[in-house]
Design a protein around this nucleic acid. Structure first.
Length: 568
RNA sequence: UGGGGGAUCGUUCAAUGGUAGGACAAACGACUCUGACUCGUUUUAUCUAGGUUCGAAUCCUAGUCCCCCAGCCA
């Protein structure tokens, strides 16, 4: 399901200025030396899943470099394996790249656009004795490939005559053989220490419908045979990929050298992104979705761009995060805290402030005139005076956060407790007089008095209070609020072998009966607002007019919680 | 033990023979009508051992540790 009707933030400002890194240094040097006439990069996803935060790094790198050097970046789908690829993923990938803030213009391509050319290049190799049809099974090929320390041995079909190879390859294309019956292999070097050079498979038979080419083909090129040549066809100057493809570069270059390609692209590798408490593996993310550990690819706990968008993370925060992370060739595990910092930094500047009470505790102002309701002005965003203010209404009954009251206050507790005075944000000072409990001894309501002289939140006599509490009045609307914690309970999920065993049972807490100030009824879909003193939240698509649902994007830093945790 | 890469504060990225710096995290403090934000202070690093040099994270030698590769996945 593609969330075409899901909220998407409006187009944003151009990406932030990126720092310098070794890839940009290489590009700069190539430009300075005149080795390239223009810079052309590409982002080459396989449409077999949704894009995630790791892809954001690659997208920002490739599109960012193109922008900075006045070049262009292609969106190219690496769709060479119809067994795993789907139209849904093609759609979601385009939506996510756009949302991240990048535009490929007219340059959207598919490796499958080049199937005919790639096929002719395969024949080109066959004709020159550089490729052969192998009738061996997958198991036999594996057995003959050797190991890390032993060289491979030749297949019995390795010396097949050119004419026979050509005939067989054409019949492979014609659909005469069953899946797996034969493959086309390059004839390179069975003794190479680089296993990718031990006669890699170029084409395999797959009788599956392709999302783009339908049933036009029953043989499909492998990644190795498709990628570099696609780069060459498109005139890519810098083919930037992750470190695990480093061993493939000699093969990439081998094809470029032996084929009549129109250009000579070069491959460069950087270290992929890892984030603590997070899994960025399409295979595992697919499992989470398939086995229903999450509600879907856009579950707000998922590290997918769709999930993070639904959670309320602005695209600019993702870009800034990627910028802060940098680009290098060393393995790295980035602290989740850096990501959260980037989100808070972005949201603090722009998000409107509102008040909401997650776990309500009723407060009755005993000296408040029965039936009276007063309107107070609340600032919309202290970081941005232009955001103005809004009215909030206070009456004799209101609600505060349960955590903001303690019958027996612990040390350094600055909030409400019997006999203590605090400020209700933008309203009045109140003092707790008595505590009302039920039969079970639980606090059900507080009786307080207010000081009419402190209207707006300031005392004319200059007296200070240590605590300021958020609150809502009786006009608040009930809502569900979903709190999220990392999906995994250890920083390195799967390090012991079983990722699923590291799934956290506490990744989702859905609170019912939360109370929102009325202004929260009109928050645009996908826009995060700050619930004062709590965090940033955004409306979830599960919301109904009479039953709003909010997601916590990220909590505010909470030094009180930290203090308590440390003291306990 | 074959091939390919990588090692700098807790984390991450810089410093390209000349003062090891930034960000995040942590600690403390200031400010505060958000225990937020902001500001200030502080702690902590060149994998090891030799060598070259006036001077080495950087160059040389020898080690150590870590990552990737044996899909008809990408």
């Amino acid at each position: 399901m593609v969330d075409a009707d899901r909220p998407t933030l409006p187009a944003e400002q151009p990406p932030e200025q990126a720092g310098r890194d070794f890839v940009r240094d290489i590009v700069q040097a190539d430009v300075d030396a005149g080795r390239v006439k223009g810079v052309v990069t590409r982002f080459p996803p396989e449409p077999n899943g949704y894009l995630h935060i790791g892809h954001a790094k690659s997208i920002c790198l490739n599109f960012g470099i193109a922008q900075e050097f006045g070049g262009r970046c292609h969106l190219r789908f690496d769709d060479t394996n119809p067994a795993k690829e789907e139209q849904e993923f093609i759609d979601s990938i385009q939506q996510d790249v756009r949302w991240l803030g990048f535009d490929w213009g007219e340059h959207r391509y598919f490796a499958s656009d080049y199937f005919e050319t790639l096929y002719s290049w395969a024949e080109h190799l066959v004709e020159r004795g550089l490729a052969y049809v192998d009738d061996s099974s997958a198991d036999e090929i594996r057995a003959l490939r050797g190991t890390l320390t032993e060289p491979g041995r030749p297949s019995p079909y390795r010396e097949r005559p050119v004419a026979e190879n050509l005939d067989l390859f054409r019949r492979m294309r014609a659909g005469e053989f069953a899946a797996g019956a034969r493959v086309l292999r390059a004839k390179i070097d069975l003794a190479s220490g680089n296993i990718n050079l031990r006669d890699p498979v170029l084409y395999r038979i797959v009788h599956a419908e392709h999302p783009r080419t339908g049933n036009a083909w029953c043989i499909y090129p492998t990644y190795d045979f498709a990628h570099g040549q696609s780069d060459a066809i498109e005139g890519i100057t810098h083919s930037i990929c992750t470190l695990e493809f480093e061993d493939h570069r000699p093969l990439y270059d081998w094809f470029i050298e032996h084929l009549p390609v129109p250009a000579r692209p070069h491959q460069y590798e950087f270290a992929r992104l890892n984030i603590s408490y997070t899994v960025l593996s399409k295979r595992i993310l697919t499992t989470l979705v398939r086995e229903r550990h999450v509600s879907g690819w856009d579950d707000p706990r998922m590290p997918t761009l769709a999930g993070q968008r639904r959670r309320g993370v602005p695209a600019a925060a993702l870009r800034e995060f990627v910028r802060k992370v940098g680009v290098a060739r060393a393995y790295s595990m980035v602290d989740l805290a850096l990501y959260e910092h980037a989100i808070r930094e972005q949201l603090n500047a722009g998000a409107a402030r509102r008040m909401a009470v997650l776990r309500p505790l009723k407060v009755v102002i005993d000296n408040w005139p029965e039936g009276q309701v007063e309107e107070l002005q609340a600032v919309n965003n202290p970081e941005n005076p232009e955001a103005g203010s809004r009215p909030v209404r206070m009456g004799r009954v209101l609600y505060i956060e349960r955590d903001d009251f303690a019958e027996v206050p612990p040390p350094r507790f600055h909030r409400l407790s019997p006999g203590r005075e605090v400020r209700l944000r933008y309203a009045y000072f109140i003092t707790c007089r008595t505590v009302e409990k039920n039969a079970a001894g639980e606090v059900v309501a507080l009786h307080c008095t207010y000081d009419p002289a402190t209207r707006g939140g300031n005392a004319p006599d200059g007296r200070k209070v240590r605590g300021t509490l958020h609150w809502v009045g009786e006009d608040a609307m009930p809502a569900e609020v979903r709190l999220y914690a990392p999906l995994f309970r250890r920083p390195d999920p799967g390090a012991d072998g079983d990722v699923m065993a590291d799934l956290s049972p506490e990744s989702l807490t859905a609170l019912q009966g939360c109370l929102l100030e009325p202004a929260l009824a009109s928050v645009p879909a996908g826009e995060a607002v700050q619930f004062e003193r709590l965090g940033y939240f955004c409306p979830d698509p599960d919301s109904r007019p009479d039953a709003p649902v909010f997601n916590r994007t990220v909590g505010l830093r909470d030094s009180w919680a930290k203090l308590q945790a440390g003291g306990a």
